[in-house]
Design a protein around this nucleic acid. Structure first.
Length: 736
DNA sequence: GAACGCCGTGTTTTT
DNA sequence: CACGGCGTTC
């Protein structure tokens, strides 16, 4: 492919964007407001460096927040430069570190086939440690301990250094667990996610020649989402960039929403102090949202304390006011959202695929899902339980990991009795003791089960069989494509057989997931014709989201506000805007409201054309009913940008009333907006219209013959020709 | 060793 | 409400 001309690279950029792209070198901070073309700047800058500055692709290290973002960025640069771009390092911090550590592991006493443990594995190891140390898991919950260890690692404190910082009894205990935990990881030839960062820093500190090697190599370092980096990542950037000082960081302090997992906004706020000679460029022109949405978002975020001042503007026009709707409860909320979605589709031709609903906690999605299913509105959920976190996938992967790294006792323990082989906790413990004493892996110990005194004969037999089976699998794996190995594992282990024997819907689902996993392996084999099981396992353990290409067309998108970062939709609903839900009660206790407000800002700025907020006067969450005030964030919205509406339940039409609700309209800020007053007295719009074809859970197919007041419809059922009156809210009725 | 049932608990999530 | 962890029972 021909090199792009400079004109091509620089066309369609506004002035600050252009400056950021052509900045020749040195530290550069790009403060990129939401929707300001950040990705465009990043990709064009990389292309510019290579095409116009004589930088070689493999001298560029570009860091993204997710694997998905890395793939997208690579593709975009490739479309500008052609295949030469392939040698660039574009990845997450974790993937880049893993790549470095695979090369350098021996320096740290690890073997290069080390296993990477995810959060679940980490907690398992912590539990083992607690047991061995005789600690009460009630007083010292594994999850809590793990999170303290993790945050210590993110601050680059090893067990010893952490031990010196302790100021309470709990941390004292954590320190002893931490020490043992790390010992175990090392014995298993395993690193956890945090280790990938910490060990790499460790490598660079202890072996200056290795640091020098990589410093020289990376002439340019670019970091996206810099506001969400933690201390370890900060150190990596600083160490690697020290030689050339060509560090370009891109981010938005107003979108920092991950402090609870170690991200430190100070990294971006202090960049100018760290690099006094840094160029700072602000991108404030927004190409995504209407002015009304932007102004509202600007006002909300302006309530935060320390921030780098920034004011987004757009020339896309004023647009519609932000709609704020009070509903009775979570069911009314769901009905309202579904009703608006139908209305938008019918009256304005807005496709379902253009609509997203954001909520603060995953639990909020259920009620909405139930209703969407009933109304026959297609939806997809982003996030939730991850594919690679499902038990069956982790089991399958654990088999592969043991084949690949037999020292990995965590994976071994996971699969040795899965499917059930009559090897219970007691036998596993005996095996572990033996392996430890003999200084061999648990897999090797299983082969010598006969030598272990505490095992019952049945367990010995079973372990020996297991060991032989694994040896066979390892032999077969050596020369087979990954997908074949995986299938062999699933059948020969009896895993699939055990699942199909269950004959439940859940088991069916699990089998389907496993088939999809085989599909992933096949895909891998196709791309890497000479790929090995080792590479597959190593790659997959850093990859956690699978919803890659499976985008369902014409479905509305449901996700948490955190998952919404980086996305955009013409229509956005933010539901559950209530004190205690959003902002979340726990953030309120911890005085972490600034971050909640940033989360609100992130959510609002995802909307291109229309933005809706809903709040319920009462909500059932976690099985108990709450009466919440409207979110303070709504109170912060300026009245002239808002259209307020109140959906009142048909049953209590003359009950209840105004005024009880504190929050955003108690300062008389309610919008005047023409027809809104009329809308506020309306009942929930009906989803069913005369003539609609419907399906009832017990009566089967039918057609709507009448729509009555109070949420009642008449339905003629084809099965027996009967006509029945049904309450829409309670009848198991959906559109056909 | 496994199945059942009780109790407690409950943000956000990528790697 | 819903799930996971743990203790009891067969």
């Amino acid at each position: 492919m021909a090199k792009p001309s400079l004109d091509q690279l620089l066309s369609d950029l506004n002035e600050p964007q252009r400056q950021a792209v052509v900045c020749p070198g040195g530290p550069l901070l790009v403060l990129a407001g939401a929707g300001s073309g950040k990705t465009r700047v990043l990709t064009h800058r990389v292309a510019f460096l290579i095409a116009a500055q004589g930088v070689k692709p493999d001298e560029v290290l570009a860091i993204t927040f997710t694997n998905k973002a890395a793939v997208e960025m690579k593709e975009r640069v490739e479309s500008l430069l052609g295949p030469i771009a392939r040698t660039m390092w574009v990845s997450t911090f974790h993937a880049a570190c893993a790549r470095i550590l695979r090369k350098e592991a021996q320096q740290l006493g690890y073997r290069r086939n080390f296993t990477i443990y995810d959060a679940g594995d980490q907690v398992r190891v912590v539990k083992q440690c607690l047991k061995e140390l005789g600690l009460d898991p009630k007083r010292f919950p594994a999850k809590g301990i793990h999170s303290v260890i993790s945050s210590a690692k993110n601050r680059l404190l090893d067990a010893e250094a952490f031990g010196e910082t302790i100021n309470n009894f709990f941390d004292d205990t954590v320190a002893s667990v931490y020490t043992l935990y790390q010992k175990k990881l090392f014995a298993n030839n395993a690193m956890d996610f945090d280790d990938l960062l910490m060990r790499t820093v460790d490598l660079f500190v202890r072996f200056p020649d290795r640091l020098e090697h990589y410093q020289r190599g990376f002439r340019h370092i670019l970091v996206d989402e810099y506001q969400d980096t933690n201390h370890a990542q900060y150190m990596l950037v600083n160490l690697l960039g020290r030689e050339h000082r060509n560090i370009c960081v891109v981010g938005d302090d107003d979108q920092s929403i991950y402090s609870w997992r170690g991200a430190d906004v100070r990294n971006i706020l202090d960049f100018k102090q760290d690099y006094p000679e840094a160029t700072v460029i602000k991108l404030e022109q927004n190409y995504r949202s209407t002015q009304a949405i932007l102004s509202a978002a600007n006002v909300v975020i302006s309530n935060n304390g320390e921030r780098m001042s920034k004011d987004l503007w757009t020339d896309l026009g004023e647009g519609e006011p932000v709609r704020v709707t009070e509903v009775e409860d979570e069911h009314g909320e769901a009905r309202y959202v579904a009703g608006e979605i139908s209305r938008l589709e019918q009256k304005e031709g807005i496709d379902h695929g253009d609509i997203a609903v954001f909520y603060r906690v995953n639990a909020q999605s259920r009620v909405l899902e139930d209703l969407l299913i009933r109304y026959g509105i297609p939806y997809r959920i982003v996030g939730g339980t991850k594919f690679y976190e499902r038990a069956e996938i982790k089991d399958a992967l654990a088999y592969l990991m043991v084949l690949e790294n037999p020292s990995d006792s965590v994976s071994f323990s996971r699969i040795v009795n899965s499917p059930k082989r009559g090897i219970g906790a007691a036998s596993v413990a005996a095996l572990a003791r033996f392996a430890e004493a003999a200084g061999i892996s648990m897999l090797d110990a299983a082969a010598r089960a006969g030598d272990i005194a505490d095992l019952r004969p049945a367990a010995v037999k079973s372990l020996e069989n297991f060991s032989v089976r694994m040896a066979d699998l390892a032999g077969a794996a050596a020369n087979s494509p990954v997908a074949e190995t995986l299938e062999e594992v699933l059948t020969s282990s009896g895993y699939l057989e055990a699942l199909s024997a269950e004959r439940t819907v859940e088991a069916e689902g699990r089998i389907e997931n496993l088939q999809e996993f085989v599909g992933v392996a096949e895909e891998y084999d196709n791309i890497h014709s000479d790929g090995s099981l080792r590479e597959f396992v190593q790659e997959i353990s850093l990859y956690t989201d699978i919803d890659k290409l499976t985008e369902v067309e014409r479905a509305i998108t449901l996700m948490t506000l955190h998952n919404a970062k980086g996305l955009e939709f013409p229509v956005v609903f933010i539901i559950g805007a209530e004190e205690g839900v959003f902002p979340h009660s726990r953030s309120m206790e911890e005085q972490n409201l600034d971050e909640e407000r940033r989360l609100c800002y992130v959510g609002m700025t995802r909307a291109k054309k229309r933005l809706y907020f809903t709040y319920a006067t009462t909500r059932n969450l976690y099985g108990s009913r709450n009466y919440n005030l409207a979110s303070r964030f709504l109170g912060e919205l300026p009245g002239d940008l808002v259209a307020f509406e109140q959906i009142r339940p048909a049953r209590t039409r003359f009950g209840g009333g105004f005024g009880g609700q504190a929050g955003f309209f108690d300062e008389g800020e309610c919008a005047e907006g023409g027809n809104e007053a009329e809308a506020s007295l309306n009942e929930t719009p009906s989803f069913f219209n005369v003539g609609d074809k419907v399906v009832h859970a017990t009566f089967g197919e039918g057609v709507i013959t009448g729509v009555e007041r109070g949420g009642t419809v008449a339905v003629r059922f084809s099965v027996d020709g009967s006509e029945r009156k049904l309450m829409v809210d309670y009848a198991p009725l959906r559109k056909a």
